[in-house]
């Protein structure tokens, strides 16, 4: 019996030992798995963006100020801005979403609805966090699956591209990932000297107005419990510095609002 136990221990040890030794090799690099994953992400991002491409706003009065806000967030948080592709699209819905390969799509409706640059920055920070924390690919892998994603990138899933894009643009991530993105956004705002609690204000306000104009409030309707989120964002922001250094001059913000067609009241 002793002999058998010893032999069994040797076999188990041999198995785990082989596994441990082999796992010291960087297979990801050797088999170019990371490169293949990156290529897949690039292809997916481009495919999904194609759906919105026609609606992109090219007016520099709109793109430049929003880009300046994103640049401030990125540079203050050591995020490679060149890897982020910011797009503003001519869609009335109050929405912003992230697509694979660093695409952030901001709807015109979101800029119209935001009362100040802090609110817009807060939402953009939230989407940026989804990208930085790799939530986008996690969500796709979880809800769509690797096999479908590969079929889409190899041209086998024509009808699925629109369906997956809809999934990314108008459905929330799971609660844990949403909270993580909210907290990360507060951290980004704090580092960028932007008001960290304005995202909470935005959520509170849209959450209260939701029944009147729910049709356009995609970002809020797909991100449930806006008030609860607002509360924990405020709570998390409490310990943060309240230094605020605006990115845009008041005049530039007004020009941006006018360019997207917002009235004075908005």
């Amino acid at each position: 019996m002793k002999k058998i136990l010893l032999q069994l221990t040797i076999v188990i040890g041999l198995f785990f030992g082989t596994w441990l030794i082999l796992s010291q090799v960087n297979w990801m690099k050797l088999l170019r798995i990371e490169k293949i994953t990156k290529n897949t992400e690039e292809k997916l991002g481009d495919l999904f963006w194609e759906i919105y491409k026609d609606k992109e706003i090219g007016d520099t009065l709109v793109t430049k100020p929003v880009d300046s806000i994103l640049t401030r967030i990125c540079t203050s948080n050591q995020i490679d801005k060149s890897a982020i592709r910011l797009h503003i699209v001519d869609i009335e819905d109050v929405n912003a979403f992230a697509l694979p390969n660093g695409h952030i799509v901001v709807n015109k409706g979101l800029i119209v609805e935001a009362l100040d640059e802090g609110e817009l920055a807060g939402v953009m920070g939230h989407e940026l966090a989804h990208l930085q924390e790799k939530h986008v690919m996690k969500k796709l892998l979880k809800e769509v699956g690797l096999s479908v994603l590969i079929s889409v990138t190899t041209g086998g899933g024509g009808g699925e591209v629109a369906e997956i894009t809809r999934l990314l643009s108008s459905s929330a991530y799971d609660r844990k990932l949403e909270k993580e993105a909210d907290m990360k956004s507060v951290d980004y705002m704090n580092m960028a000297n932007l008001p960290p609690d304005h995202l909470a204000n935005f959520l509170y306000r849209l959450g209260e107005n939701a029944p009147d104009n729910m049709r356009y409030l995609t970002w809020v309707s797909t991100h449930p419990d806006s008030k609860a989120r607002g509360e924990y964002i405020v709570e998390y922001s409490k310990g943060k510095s309240n230094k605020s250094r605006p990115v845009l001059a008041t005049q530039t913000w007004k020009q941006l609002k006018t360019a997207v067609g917002a009235t004075e009241a908005e």
Binding site: T18, W19, L22, S23, Q24, V25, M28, K139, L141, G145
Partner: peptide
């Protein structure tokens, strides 16, 4: 779990498959 959910390929996975 890698093919149908959000698990990812890692060095440990490849090493396990080879073992």
């Amino acid at each position: 779990s890698i093919v149908f959910s959000d698990a990812v390929v890692t060095n440990y996975y490849v090493a396990y498959v080879i073992t």
